[in-house]
Design a protein around this nucleic acid. Structure first.
Lengths: 175, 175
DNA sequence: ATAAACTGATTGCATTTTGCAATCAGTTGC
DNA sequence: GCAACTGATTGCAAAATGCAATCAGTTTAT
């Protein structure tokens, strides 16, 4: 379940950690979607991850030190997953990955607006976002008001695109 | 053989292109190792890729527009593989990936020196490197002398570490 | 009190992908 | 002519994937 160590090359070892179809998708949903629970991740992902794969990857990501798991005080059976610093520092990689995909791949407009905003914000925005994630997941103190977060601004951009593309429609799956 | 389009998310689509254990390894060897032939890639990689997987991934990367293939004039059976602009623009992602791996994973010193130098060089060095790759693979004009390339300086750094770790040894597998 | 919905999973099974070893036909150098 | 080298291909076992069904305990609504 842990990594192979095919070689000590940094790129190779990084691939051994998240060089599969699902690990980064899960981390993306936790980082950008704010998902913290099994069910949120299971039903929330656009790519429709299967429950056994989700369970397997969560376990693996915990073993690798990218996630931690804690009991949720509001529900005896609920588990809450948190990003570690190791996972939070993936933000610049995800930002680059999104920017690259936006240029070269057939992305949809509403799903790429976040990548565009994150690219335009550059490293300062990424740092701010990582601080917010540290506050959210690690309990680090923060002075950013909840309505001025990077995630909120990314979400606002997304909603603006959706609203423009479907004017007057009442549907809002991302409330 | 082409991508699934599980969703139009840029990160997802990027993962569908190189979210596997081998595609980025091949691109890494072409970009940083200057490998252009099947046999170079087959025997040169530290991770020991199998020939059928290499053949499959080269084909796939060509279909996706990341590589092109041409006959090598020096040998009727030899094929020479070239990076496209799409692949060359992965340099910043590889740089970030290497930097992340260097911090969080059990990398070896001699294999991580390149990642360290590339990280220290920052975006200006990445741009210079991409220009060199464009010259090498796309035939774009360039005014950089062959001994002042980014790849040469990364290679020099690597050799310095190897020489320091094995003083007086005559072995030099990377000549 | 009880039924329904929700919690984080686990199991079984068919399909697909992977990885290793062996092999291939054509080309080149000696 | 023969060994080494070219870019692959094939057969096969093992592993990963994905889907559907299921599970026991918890909470919510009636």
């Amino acid at each position: 379940m842990s990594i192979d160590r095919r070689s000590g090359c940094p790129i190779n070892l990084s691939l051994e950690v998240f060089g599969d179809r699902w690990s980064l998708i899960i981390l993306r949903d936790m980082i950008f979607g704010g998902k913290r629970h099994f069910r949120d991740l299971l039903n929330g992902s656009l790519e429709r991850i299967a429950s056994n794969i989700l369970a397997d990857r969560l376990k693996r990501l915990m073993e690798l030190g990218m996630l931690t798991r804690a009991d949720d005080p509001t529900h005896k059976q609920k588990a809450i997953y948190s990003l570690t610093e190791m996972a939070i520092t993936l933000v610049p990689i995800l930002a680059h990955l999104g920017a690259w995909g936006r240029v070269w791949l057939p992305v949809s407009e509403e799903l790429s607006i976040r990548a565009e905003l994150l690219e335009k914000g550059g490293p300062p925005m990424w740092e701010k976002f990582m601080d917010e994630l540290r506050h959210e997941h690690l309990g680090t103190p923060s002075d950013t008001p909840p309505d001025a977060t990077v995630r909120a601004s990314l979400q606002a951009g997304y909603k603006a695109v959706v609203a423009r593309k479907a004017p007057g429609a009442g549907c809002d799956p991302d409330a």
